[in-house]
Design a protein around this nucleic acid. Structure first.
Lengths: 187, 187
DNA sequence: GTCTATAAAGCGATAGAC
DNA sequence: GTCTATCGCTTTATAGAC
């Protein structure tokens, strides 16, 4: 039992990379078997719900990671500006300067959106809410903080699209610096 | 022959909607047959290269539409500010306030990116170049115009992601208005 | 708990009748 | 030019040996 739990903690990140690289539809069990080293028997033992359950757990784990490493620090930072700066650093690192794609964004654009609508909404509202909270502490009024947070999150997603499209990580680096400056500008 | 050409002009937009709704991998020949009313025999008569050729022609037709309705007017507008304003109106209309997704963006994020890398790059560089050209005419220097154009295109793509994710077209409308104001601000 | 074998359905693509 | 039938192959998912 303990082994099963330990193994699951190793498997979910591997699944995440497969879904990221191939999308939900494109992530075949053959690719998953190859990436994890687990046969179909083992996979269905871990995830009786099959591919859909795998993707749900991956999305949940991504949300957990962002909660722990981005949303929570954003809220609890002694200095809100420092918290926001830390967010941008974490985002740049997480998305590997745009080489890594946002799985939640990919799912949102894809045909499987309805299947995972709740997880997708939770992820993005969590991000916007946490950032808006920091912006309020920076001195913005409620509406301005929300709007600015929305613009920032959206710019990051757009930067991931354009970076992949042009195959140039400098697009991501530039965009992140621009949004960061806009968001950290004095109210 | 004339009939075949006329038919093709009707079929490509139908194909576009299928690819938009289901992505490249998710757009099965069964769905395509249903949407077009054409059997596999007819489809392979039109597109001997199969699904890949269909997608290539759809991407080419999208690029042509943007060239005719966005890039060219942007360059030839007597008043650059009016040209940019027209671009935002056309974009809002084309993407149906965010209800319609950008197929080129979807392809860029997906696993089929490498297959269509040239078409994807052409589309986005064409857009950024045309907008940067207008911004230069508005009085921005070369580097600022390029950077601002890149930010605008990226914000539109991000707005499409976030609009679908939150299932709220007001996100798109807000984002478009914000980018429009930034881009049309006096240099 | 993990494997191999296999089922049942769906995939893109082709062949051939008309 | 369009259809139906069909070919191989791959898909997800299951069954059963170990």
């Amino acid at each position: 039992m303990a082994k099963a739990i330990a193994d699951r903690a190793e498997v979910v990140p591997q699944l995440a990379e497969v879904f990221r690289a191939h999308g939900y539809e494109g992530a075949t069990l053959a690719l998953i078997t190859e990436a994890t080293g687990l046969g179909k028997g083992s996979l269905y033992n871990f995830f009786p719900g099959g591919k859909e359950q795998m993707a749900q757990e991956v999305l949940a784990s991504i949300d957990l990671w962002f909660t722990d490493h981005i949303y929570a620090p954003l809220r609890s930072a002694a200095d809100p500006a420092a918290g926001i700066a830390a967010m941008f650093a974490a985002v740049d690192s997480y998305f590997r300067s745009g080489q890594r794609v946002c799985l939640v964004g990919v799912v949102a654009l894809g045909a499987a959106r309805d299947l995972f609508a709740d997880a997708v909404k939770t992820y993005f509202t969590g991000w916007i809410d946490a950032l808006a909270h920091s912006l309020r502490r920076l001195g913005h009024d409620k509406a301005a903080a929300r709007h600015m947070a929305e613009q920032a999150v959206l710019a990051i997603q757009g930067a991931l699209v354009l970076t992949r499209a042009l195959d140039d990580t400098r697009v991501f680096t530039r965009a992140l610096a621009t949004v960061r400056a806009q968001v950290l500008a004095k109210p």
